[in-house]
Design a protein around this nucleic acid. Structure first.
Lengths: 131, 131
DNA sequence: CCCTGTGTACTATCTTCCTAGTACAAGCGA
DNA sequence: TCGCTTGTACTAGGAAGATAGTACACAGGG
């Protein structure tokens, strides 16, 4: 499957930042590898119904971070990596998280409640770590 | 413990939205109940070093949603409610999540990687659910 | 060479968010 | 009544995000 972006208009996060984050996550979790091509600026703009400039801004940011390299006439390709933890570890953790998530669904939690719970636990931890 | 707000400047989410979300989360997870008082506009503004207008905007939004009611000279109080997760269920799920989180920390994941992993798993699920 | 598709650059405009500063109305207690 | 605290309203401005439209440079294929 080709890499596909997804936008959450209700989150309040700027569009270009959502795109940057998703590429970073793709690299972190092994969805994207060195040499992979990202969809072109115009493709993304058309698919998400946003301005090409917004997509270009995201790609420029990724280039500045050394994660991708543009090739005129061809597209934008992954040339860097932020992968620091073995894929096996990610797979194991993702599996554990999905198991937990199933339990939350069984308990009747909807999407918003799940996100609220996750955000709260992470917040609490950050708060404790800062103290 | 009095309800306390927390800001993440790097998230890109507008300040007033972060405040609104945190109150909603507090209600969802049973941290806040009918009759509880929120910190005053000026208290929050001073604690977070933001403009009082920004806090007022958040409180106005919460009032518009029917979750809180302002009382002149006294403060802002919780008067509404949303579907709550039973305390026992919440405690069990939070415990499970903390256990998983400990495993992630042990595997060497930093804060950003944890958030990326969680976001991706939730995204994948939303994507699968939409299909 | 010419055409196409790619990323990029530029200006201009609009909206939202945030800030600053000031002022006002309502409730409480001495 | 007076003083304090509360939420609220208002104007003004700066900064960031997103859009629209146009134009250019580069690479590849015919």
């Amino acid at each position: 499957m080709v890499f596909a972006f997804r936008l959450d208009a209700r989150s309040g996060v700027p569009t270009y930042l959502q795109l940057v984050d998703q590429v970073r996550r793709g690299l972190l979790l092994g969805y994207l590898h060195d040499g992979d091509q990202l969809p072109t600026v115009r493709e993304v703009a058309a698919a998400l119904v946003v301005n090409p400039n917004t997509v270009a801004k995201a790609y420029r940011e990724l280039e500045r971070a050394g994660l991708v390299t543009p090739r005129a006439g061809q597209g934008t390709f992954v040339t860097g990596s932020v992968d620091q933890v073995p894929a096996v570890t990610y797979a194991r953790l993702a599996r554990g998280l999905r198991t937990w998530l199933r339990g939350a669904r069984d308990a009747g939690l909807d999407d918003e409640q799940v996100r609220a719970l996750v955000a709260t636990v992470l917040d609490d931890q950050a708060r404790a770590g800062a103290a």
